[in-house]
Design a protein around this nucleic acid. Structure first.
Lengths: 96, 96, 96, 96
DNA sequence: TCGCCTGATAGTTGCC
DNA sequence: GGCAACTATCAGGCGA
């Protein structure tokens, strides 16, 4: 099935209709999930607001915490790099 | 310190520490989920690319399909608005 | 041609004060124009309202007309992309 | 002026087709102008970037300056209000 | 008038 | 490294 003898450039014309469709539907499915979660987040913010919290401040808190996390990871990555460069095992387990 | 006698306006100082923290963690949990799904989407695109599809084309297809949906919704909204403007019940049921 | 001899790193300190100022003032001038036009638009809506038109409907009309235009452009873009994907010259001239 | 005797609710059905069209076209014309100016602004930013300025910083400068202006106007407005409340002529003369 | 909700804008990320 | 698409944030308009 789907023996696409594409000897030349043109990729997947006609043959792969269902194939293509499958990819698109997978993507659409995932995007819908993503949208749902985004809605959930909005709901949480709304609920927090209903409890007297300032949404703008909350957003900032979340942002800052994420930033901190990223920086921490960044630092660890740098450390890893150095240790690699020095020929030491980077973390506990052997990488690569 | 931080004797939480909030008999008056200032909302949620001290008391709501854990309360606040709970909200933030719920949000962070959801955002992580969202990120994971975004990554999944990227993987699907990558897989499609590996099967010879042009990512740009794929994105456009997905975008257009979504746009069509939105347009349909928009048209329904317009109909609603017109019926409002004409003083008819818009969406409850077909009156008249 | 940036003939400012910045022998070291720090770009445009001191020298470009007026230079910078000129850019900012150009931007501010344009932004003011933009604001004025936005106000004009509001006036037109207000006038239309005074003539018995429903502002919401008007906005929707304008929005839909713009969307139609965008969609047409998008379709052209898709066509271009497909032709690219098929290895044909997309926009050099109208073939067929 | 406005000789359309709309004794009942339905506003301007049929009569005002060209009338309506005129409003819409005025709006569209203005919106196009606005878009053009927005593009001009982008160009200025691009040019500034080409001269070695950091766009993000520029934006901040513009924003802060606008903020300052707004605050100044705000303060003047407050002053006006006070003078009104005190029964003094508030804005006849520009002075300070 | 207040709160929601949509549209505009700034920032980020990914592709070329 | 520049450019374009996408996302998140913010502000103004609308309705209750």
């Amino acid at each position: 099935m789907t023996d696409q003898s594409n000897s030349d450039a043109t990729p997947n014309i006609g043959i792969g209709r269902d194939h293509l469709r499958a990819f698109i539907e997978r993507i659409e499915r995932l995007e819908e999930e993503k949208t749902n979660i985004a809605d959930d987040i909005k709901e949480v913010y709304a609920e927090a607001k209903g409890n007297g919290y300032d949404i703008k401040v909350l957003r900032q808190l979340v942002r800052v915490r994420k930033q901190d996390t990223n920086e921490r990871l960044e630092h660890e990555a740098i450390l890893d790099t150095y240790m690699h460069a020095l020929g030491m095992a980077p973390d506990l387990e052997a990488g690569e």
